[in-house]
């Protein structure tokens, strides 16, 4: 009994060949002569063999070829973020030998000028942003990726909710305003494809999954044949439900909101 307990305690080391010499030989001999220990040992070995017979997907060629250039870019950005560290800037540019009171004075004047400029013109970019033209096809402003995604999710959710809440037994299809919904779906679909192509690496997997699901539904919506196409409307309702799209959008919106708040906090702390 004691030797069974001792053997079973060491089975992990035996199956992965972490024991050698006399100890291993003794334990294997016990296993051969003990049906219970042999059964456990065989089951463990079989399980490990099963876990070995697999073919994991190869990394994508983009990962193999571009990961270094991406990292290099991030490394440059990291350096860029530290650009107001004057001593390191001077050190990196090897300007230390020429640093003189006159030179330091020039740098100081330059920074004062930049500061005044910043105070005077800091409102300007916002004014410009307001004037960014709206995309005629999608109705979505050609602004940042984040804002575009927010708009896409918000508008899609509003439209999908109308479909989810629509009841074939009690409601008329006119409530859904199918002509308008079809056009809007086609536009949102174009926008979804465009956003998905530009997804930054940090958001690729999660947002990609959500937008792909969304594209599938938007495509079906854009292809509704008419007000009597009840069958397709039901398929769309089932699709929204089975893919949990509304829930996913809600989760994504919550996540994006908390990211924004975090960024805001960081910005406030930096200031």
């Amino acid at each position: 009994m004691d030797s069974c307990r001792k053997t079973q305690k060491k089975l992990i080391s035996i199956v992965w060949n972490e024991l050698d010499g006399r100890e291993r030989a003794d334990l294997l001999e016990h296993i051969k002569g003990c049906p219970e220990c042999e059964r456990i040992y065989n089951e463990m070995s079989k399980t490990l063999k099963k876990m070995e017979t697999r073919k994991r997907p190869e990394p994508s060629s983009a990962f193999m070829e571009k990961s270094w250039s991406q990292l290099k870019q991030e490394m440059t950005e990291k350096k860029g973020r530290g650009r107001f560290n004057i001593p390191s800037l001077i050190g990196n540019l090897s300007l230390r030998p020429v640093l003189s009171p006159g030179f330091a004075g020039s740098i100081l004047i330059l920074f004062i000028g930049m500061f005044i400029g910043w105070i005077l013109f800091s409102g300007k970019p916002d004014d410009n942003q307001l004037q960014i033209p709206t995309d005629q096809n999608t109705g979505i402003q050609n602004i940042t990726y984040q804002e575009r995604t927010d708009r896409l999710l918000e508008r899609s959710k509003t439209m999908l909710l109308a479909f989810v809440n629509w009841d074939a037994k009690t409601d008329d299809t006119s409530i859904l305003d199918l002509d308008r919904s079809k056009k809007l779906s086609a536009n949102l679909l174009t926008e979804a494809v465009s956003i998905r192509k530009q997804l930054p690496a940090s958001e690729r997997a999660r947002v990609n999954e959500l937008i792909t699901d969304l594209e599938y539904i938007l495509l079906q919506l854009a292809n509704i044949e008419g007000e009597n196409d009840l069958e397709n409307i039901e398929i769309i309702q089932t699709g929204i439900d089975s893919r949990g799209i509304i829930l996913k959008i809600n989760l994504e919106e919550i996540s994006r909101l908390s990211q924004k708040q975090e960024k805001k906090k960081i910005n406030e702390n930096t200031i």
Binding site: R56, P57, P59, S60, F63, M64, S67, Q70, L71, A201, S202, R204, A205, N208
Partner: peptide
């Protein structure tokens, strides 16, 4: 790169996420 990718893949079970994770690790 490859070894880290496979390790990441075993941890997260998805190619895209494994690539992202490996990149983040580097």
């Amino acid at each position: 790169r490859k070894k880290l990718y496979y390790f990441a893949y075993d941890l997260v079970g998805n190619r895209e996420e494994a690539e992202d994770l490996a990149q983040e690790v580097f």
